[in-house]
Nucleic acid binder design. Sequence first.
DNA 1: GTGAAAGCGCTAACAA
DNA 2: TTGTTAGCGCTTTCAC
Lengths: 331, 331
Amino acid sequence: MSKTTLSDVARRAGVSTMTVSRVLNGRGGASPETSDRIRQAAEELAYRPNAVARALKSDRSGIIGVVVPDISNPFFPEIIRGAESVAMRHGYNLLLCNVIESADREIDVLRVLETQRVDGVILCSARLPEKPLLQALKQYKAAVVINRSVPSAAAGCINIDYRQGAYEATRHLWDSGRRRIGIVAGPETSHGAAQRLEGVRSFFASVGGRELGIAHCTPDVAGGQTASLQLLEAHPDLDGLVCYNDLNAIGALKSCGRAGRAVPGAVSIIGFDGIPLGELVTPPLSTIYVDKYSIGQLGMRMLLDRLGGKFTQQSILIRPELLARESSRSV
Amino acid sequence: MSKTTLSDVARRAGVSTMTVSRVLNGRGGASPETSDRIRQAAEELAYRPNAVARALKSDRSGIIGVVVPDISNPFFPEIIRGAESVAMRHGYNLLLCNVIESADREIDVLRVLETQRVDGVILCSARLPEKPLLQALKQYKAAVVINRSVPSAAAGCINIDYRQGAYEATRHLWDSGRRRIGIVAGPETSHGAAQRLEGVRSFFASVGGRELGIAHCTPDVAGGQTASLQLLEAHPDLDGLVCYNDLNAIGALKSCGRAGRAVPGAVSIIGFDGIPLGELVTPPLSTIYVDKYSIGQLGMRMLLDRLGGKFTQQSILIRPELLARESSRSV
DNA sequence: GTGAAAGCGCTAACAA
DNA sequence: TTGTTAGCGCTTTCAC
């Protein structure tokens, strides 16, 4: 239990606290020998500056709040790592909050972060309605939201071009000869899901085709399994599945396996996100790859810029990329 | 940017800051009507207590530092979620730190947490040598280490019975008829790795056998792939692999695939940890299952107990369980 | 039932 | 080059 304070160090070095503060913060203002004496005293006493006191004085806590829906979803740890790598370089730390996919908890958590006087907030996939969200964002010195659009005065935004991604995904299946394509569409309430559907439909419009069927589901493996099974039963001639995310696609892979429909022999499957897991299933999953680590980095950079009063980038749209693997090979 | 302070509320309610403090903290000491006036004023001004000031005064930050080697390893998010669920119920928040598998960074991070005056620390899979680790732990009001043993005065410990688990894993392969078993052994510096090796050897001793070879590696898919490839090349007759963790095992799965050795036909593979991913690969991975969420909960409970001066449980040993799936089926 | 004063550890501003 | 003063927002005495 270190309780050494600045004045302990000052006493030991025979100077005032102010001098110690200046020296230890590298703001010069002391003779070399005094400085040495101070540094040595600090070392001997294992002095650690009290960030709490400093935060109170300076109104800067050095802490960034990061809110994610569910840290067990492999999509988010990558974002967190990217954000942390940038934060660390700038002397910031992350206060992490899981909101377990619940809007109520999201409010609670944002209130706690306010209380903790975090310097800024990165909010991933907020489920909050527009009004309370904007209200909450106003309370922070700076904020960045990921997977959601808000006015740039309220927060910086990083969005993924889901529409474009889903367009590419559908075209990819079409180009590999599939014509009877079903959609595993993710949560009905998800904003990203709606954008993906737009992309799908926009592609079909361009070739004068149409999807075979759509099934909504939870954004996990189980959901994908159920939804794809539904589609397979309703449309025995189905030969392609465009999925909301990779977890859904992996569920679809399982369903096809159980239903005796070979992938990619009989059914071609493509996911979305590009989680590491996709490479490890059999067959390896084709996907629309999103660079999550970069998103985390960009988000944190944007946040720190905003904290520093720089508003160069207000909104970034991430262009995902087709990553064709085995599950969508032409046959 | 809320900057409402206690005295803003006091002024508006026409009382002293002290009364406001008492009322808002539910410590009574004010007439019902005064209380109402105060609560209303606080509401109108959207007052949020300043946890920084409170922490300075009370020497309790309400923040628990959590240090993990790598949040992208699916082993840790589960622990974090478990820990957070308990912390949340008790009004604590988590300051999360990734140390990206580096001992140097571990020291830095622990120093930062000290500076931030966290109330306690949960340290997962510490790689630090004994001396500096104990030195660092001393600085906190309370600490819990997971996957490492230290004297109970220094920290509470939660350990997984790696020895027993590895014993079971080896026996499982042996019982399914494998006699030429290689070990994908994880990081050479890891304590858990050493314990697993003990378990493996203890089993072999009991049947008068011996492992075919041992290859150390990083605790991820790539590491498992490399190590297993090494073993496969050095020992073409190898028919079983006991792996440090599931990620390693999945890497081994890939190597076997590439080398044309069927799993479980030619080679039987078993992992460790029981991450969700293991169920989704082909063939589904046998593993020694560890209940990570519980570990997180137990760890946080132990920490909060220690913070409260209760030292009922000093050390917990988690017994993992064999989860036999397809990758180790007898043939 | 209510308030005044002091101080947690640090640093900005102003002396000396 | 060094020290003094004051105050960040809150809560713990202790007094009224």
